[in-house]
């Protein structure tokens, strides 16, 4: 651990990695609770994997892969939203299809782009140590956007997540609010690609929020708890992976899983020792 602290003080790339972890955690904390409450982890997974299509096309065209990822995430989020609204009975199949089609398109374009394979691994599994100052600015802008929209619309998100019919009766534009929420999920996926990669991103979105939900007694507490847990996990994962030179993304995910597992065991034991109502 002291080696990590020493390196942190002297190595700018490690400092950027630490800041990236905090910025990514803020996105996880803000959006993870809604993915859980709305039970949309499958949809978010579809967005995450289909993003490879946009990245592959960006590689092929010589454009920024993160820009390609962002555009693809927005397009796929819109498609998934429309599928939910108009072809709900086919939602599961069509989301799964988008998931695979996006990856297939991405792999074909990457195959046609000499030298793109090396970068591909860092986007599939993340490499927080390669984050640049420009990436940090990009992440900060996404965080601010997500924070602003969630701050304005969190009650609308709760209303449509609890009960769409009731929300409609109150004049809430359910379809539009749902599409906005999906768009935020898509942006958060892009935010996290550098940290965890598109294969592992779902765990980083859902596990801190799931751990926080075991203790929280309000949506605000759930959000704050998820953010704190995510910051702790990304920082701990980064520190643990440094000395043995493990890949940081997978280490962070395993720390998240460990924290969730411990929280689950702790709350289960607590309920057995102190049954509810006593």
């Amino acid at each position: 651990m002291s080696a990590f602290v020493d390196a942190l003080l002297g190595q700018p790339f490690l400092q950027r990695a630490l800041v990236a972890g905090v910025l990514a955690s803020l996105g996880c904390g803000l959006i993870g609770p809604w993915v859980l409450i709305r039970r949309m982890s499958h949809l978010a997974g579809g967005i995450a994997h289909a993003v490879l299509g946009g990245m592959g096309i960006a590689f092929f065209l010589g454009a920024s892969p993160l820009l390609g990822a962002a555009l693809a995430a927005l397009v796929v989020a819109l498609l998934i939203g429309l599928i939910h609204l108009y072809w709900e009975t086919q939602e599961d199949v069509l989301t799964g299809a988008l998931w695979s089609i996006g990856m297939a398109v991405g792999l074909l374009f990457i195959h046609g782009t000499p030298g793109a394979g090396a970068d591909l691994m860092s986007y599939l599994f993340g490499n927080i140590l390669l984050v640049s100052g420009k990436d940090l600015l990009f992440m900060l802008l996404i965080d601010l956007l997500v924070l602003g929209v969630v701050g304005l619309l969190h009650r609308h998100f709760l209303a449509i997540s609890l009960d769409e019919d009731f929300a409609r009766s109150r004049g809430v534009p359910v379809a539009l609010v749902y599409l906005i929420l999906l768009t935020l999920v898509a942006l958060t996926v892009v935010l996290l690609i550098r940290v965890a990669g598109l294969i592992l991103v779902m765990a980083l979105i859902t596990l801190p929020a799931a751990a926080s939900s075991l203790f929280a007694r309000s949506i605000a507490a759930l959000t704050l708890g998820a953010t704190v847990i995510a910051i702790t996990c990304t920082t701990a994962g980064l520190a643990l992976s440094y000395a043995p030179d493990w890949p940081a993304g997978p280490t962070i995910i395993l720390v998240c899983a460990l924290v969730y597992g411990l929280a689950l065991i702790a709350t289960t034991l607590q309920r057995r020792v102190i049954p509810s109502g006593s």
């Binding site: 859980l36 409450i37 009650r155 709760l158 209303a159 609890l162 009731f166 109150r170 939900s213 929280a216 007694r217 309000s218 949506i219 507490a221 759930l222």
Partner: peptide, 11 residues
């Protein structure tokens, strides 16, 4: 999910 009776009513 952690939603209280009061938060539900306020919706």
């Amino acid at each position: 999910m952690p939603i209280t009776v009061s938060a539900l009513a306020q919706l």
